Amino acid sequence: KLPPGWEKRMFANGTVYYFNHITNASQFERPSG
């Protein structure tokens, strides 16, 4: 399970990334916590 605010998303080319809808942060590494 991801930390609060984070969700797993995917680009059109299939690349997975993680987006935080609270802070609008995005990253390729899975957030810890």
Rank of each mutant, 00 (worst) to 15 (best):
S26R: 12
G5S: 05
W6G: 00
P4F: 12
G14W: 02
W6F: 02
T23H: 03
K1L: 13
R30E: 12
K8Y: 07
Y18R: 00
F11E: 12
W6K: 00
Y18D: 01
Y17D: 07
H21D: 07
N24L: 12
G5N: 09
F28D: 07
K8D: 02
E29V: 07
M10Q: 12
F19A: 02
K1F: 13
G5T: 03
H21W: 14
T15R: 09
H21N: 13
L2Q: 02
N24S: 10
P4R: 09
H21I: 15
M10Y: 14
K8M: 15
S32D: 13
E7G: 04
L2S: 02
G5D: 06
F19N: 01
R30N: 11
A12G: 10
G5V: 02
W6Y: 01
V16E: 15
I22V: 12
K1E: 15
H21S: 14
F11D: 15
F19P: 05
P31Q: 01
E29Q: 09
T23S: 08
A25R: 12
V16R: 03
S26I: 15
I22K: 07
P3I: 03
R30K: 10
A12P: 15
Y17T: 02
N13G: 07
S26Y: 11
Y17M: 06
Y18E: 01
M10H: 11
T23F: 05
I22G: 06
N20D: 05
A12Q: 11
A25N: 10
I22S: 08
A12M: 09
A12I: 08
F11P: 04
E7V: 11
M10V: 14
P31F: 01
V16H: 09
Y17K: 05
P3G: 07
G5L: 02
A25M: 14
P3A: 07
T23R: 03
E7H: 08
F11N: 15
N13K: 03
M10E: 11
N20R: 00
K8G: 04
Y17E: 08
G5E: 08
I22P: 01
A12Y: 07
R30L: 11
P3F: 03
M10R: 09
K8W: 06
N20A: 01
F19E: 06
K1R: 12
G33T: 13
E29P: 06
R9Y: 07
K8L: 13
E29G: 06
R9I: 08
P3W: 06
E29L: 07
G33V: 14
H21E: 10
W6M: 00
A25L: 13
G33F: 15
F11Q: 13
F19M: 03
F11H: 14
L2K: 06
E7A: 06
Y18A: 00
E7F: 06
N13R: 02
Y18F: 08
P4Y: 12
Y18N: 00
L2R: 01
E29I: 07
L2P: 11
E7Y: 04
Y18W: 09
G33I: 13
S32M: 14
N24K: 13
I22A: 08
P4I: 10
A25G: 07
R30Q: 10
F11L: 15
F28K: 10
A25K: 13
A25I: 13
T23A: 04
G5Q: 06
G14Q: 04
N13E: 06
L2F: 03
W6H: 00
I22M: 11
H21A: 12
R30A: 11
G33H: 12
I22L: 12
Q27L: 05
L2D: 03
P4W: 11
N20S: 05
Q27P: 00
G5A: 06
P4T: 09
A12K: 11
N13S: 07
Y18I: 01
P3N: 03
N24Y: 06
V16F: 11
S26F: 13
N24R: 11
K8T: 09
H21F: 14
A12C: 12
G14K: 03
F28Y: 11
E7N: 04
F28E: 08
P31V: 01
Q27N: 04
L2W: 04
N13D: 15
S32T: 14
P31R: 01
G5K: 02
G33N: 13
E7T: 08
L2N: 02
F11S: 15
N13P: 04
K8A: 10
I22N: 10
N20W: 02
Y17N: 02
N13I: 02
N20Q: 03
Y17S: 03
P3D: 06
G33S: 13
A25Q: 15
K1A: 14
F19I: 08
M10I: 13
A25V: 15
G33D: 14
Q27R: 05
K8E: 13
N24F: 08
T23I: 05
Y17Q: 05
G33A: 13
S32Q: 13
P3Q: 05
A12E: 14
A25E: 15
P4H: 12
S32V: 14
W6E: 00
F19T: 04
M10P: 02
M10A: 09
P3E: 05
I22E: 11
G14V: 02
S26N: 07
R30S: 09
G33Y: 14
N24Q: 14
W6L: 00
I22F: 13
W6Q: 00
S26D: 04
V16P: 09
K1H: 12
E7M: 06
F28V: 11
N20H: 05
Y17G: 05
V16W: 10
Q27W: 05
K1P: 15
T23Q: 04
E29H: 08
R30P: 14
Q27Y: 05
V16K: 05
T23N: 07
E29W: 08
F28M: 12
F19G: 01
T23D: 05
N24H: 12
N13V: 04
S32P: 11
E29Y: 07
K1S: 14
P31T: 01
Y18Q: 00
P3R: 03
G14N: 05
T15M: 12
P31Y: 01
A12W: 08
F11T: 15
A12R: 09
P4N: 10
T15Y: 07
G5H: 11
R30G: 04
P31S: 01
E29A: 06
P3L: 06
F11I: 06
L2Y: 05
R9P: 00
M10F: 13
G14F: 03
M10W: 12
G14E: 04
S32L: 13
K8V: 14
G14Y: 01
L2A: 03
I22H: 10
W6V: 01
T23E: 06
Y18T: 00
H21G: 07
N13M: 02
P4G: 08
N20E: 03
E7R: 04
T15L: 12
Y17I: 09
Q27E: 04
M10D: 05
R9K: 10
F28I: 11
F19D: 03
H21V: 15
E7D: 05
G14P: 00
G5W: 06
